[in-house]
């Protein structure tokens, strides 16, 4: 039976050239031989963002609008051969109006999405925002937060109108989760958003719409820890009203004291039989 293994390596490489990034990763994970074939084929990524700061490195591979693979490494440097292709760079000749990448009509859709979401990224990734001056100022941060909340509300309203959600590219779509689970998740998210409007979705630093199904994050930004503490405090306050809390704090001491009370009481006096 003719199958993949019967094909010569050159044809396999030819097929791999036609695959997108995530399919290459999948094929490379099937066996050693395919990994070698995938690694030997040149990979072209139109948009990649690199970051390196204080021993931490970040790679974001953009595969489309609201579709990306985010990798973050700590204390590791790995050699990568990179080749720049100037075809993908922005050309001034294509500029139709003065707004450039901020124009919805004439700019590239990806460029528009990217620049529209730049403030959000700054808010989510404070560790990687050295390229903007005065970002540490509290007023700017607050303003960004307010804008974020406003934008999120609009997005939720829009998302509730849209019924068919398109899953992220490159990741497997699980029907049960997307169709049934998605609705539940949404409801839970909405409930949570009512309570903590700002702190929600802070972990999905790059995403602005529907969060990614899978994100290969090795660790979160340490700056977000402050926010997570706030969330924990809020959770603790909600824990006071749970039945488990009532059981342990109120009923359990009463029960113990009752047992001690029973143990301390002298046994009922019985008539002495030895005297008779």
């Amino acid at each position: 039976m003719t199958c993949w293994n019967y094909l010569p390596a050159e044809i396999k490489q030819h097929v791999v050239k036609k695959l997108d990034f995530m399919s290459r990763v999948s094929l490379g994970s099937t066996c050693r031989l395919n990994r070698q074939i995938v690694n030997s084929t040149k990979l072209e990524l139109p948009r990649v963002r690199f970051g390196y700061k204080k021993g931490r490195s970040l790679i974001v591979i953009y595969t489309g609008i609201e579709k990306f693979l985010r990798l973050e490494f700590g204390n590791s440097i790995f050699p990568v051969n990179l080749e720049r292709n100037t075809d993908y760079f922005w050309k001034p000749s294509t500029l139709k109006c003065g707004l450039g990448s901020f124009c919805k009509q004439c700019s590239d859709p990806f460029e528009y999405w990217y620049y529209q979401n730049l403030p959000r990224r700054v808010l989510h990734e404070p560790f990687w925002t050295d390229f903007i001056l005065n970002i540490d100022q509290k007023l700017i941060r607050e303003e960004l937060r307010m804008n974020y909340v406003k934008d999120e509300r609009e997005k939720i309203q829009k998302a509730s109108k849209k019924k068919n959600l398109v899953s992220s590219w490159g990741f497997r779509r699980d029907g049960s989760i997307n169709e049934e689970g998605q609705g539940k998740k949404k409801r839970i998210r909405k409930k949570k958003k009512k309570k903590i409007p700002i702190l929600e979705n802070f972990k999905d630093s790059e995403d602005v719409g529907e969060p990614e199904v899978v994100s290969y994050e090795i660790f979160e930004d340490s700056e977000n820890l402050e926010d997570s503490e706030d969330v924990e405090e809020q959770k603790q306050t909600s824990d006071y009203m749970t039945p488990r809390f009532i059981l342990t704090v109120v009923l359990f001491p009463i029960l113990i004291s009752f047992i001690f009370y029973l143990g301390d009481t002298p046994p009922a006096t019985t008539p002495d039989t030895t005297d008779s």
């Binding site: 993949w4 293994n5 999948s26 099937t30 590219w169």
Partner: peptide, 17 residues
């Protein structure tokens, strides 16, 4: 091979482990 897991690819392409 689009949007397929390695296990699914093994079945589709007949790739042994």
């Amino acid at each position: 091979a689009k949007d397929k897991t390695p296990e699914e690819l093994r079945i589709i392409y007949g790739i042994p482990t």
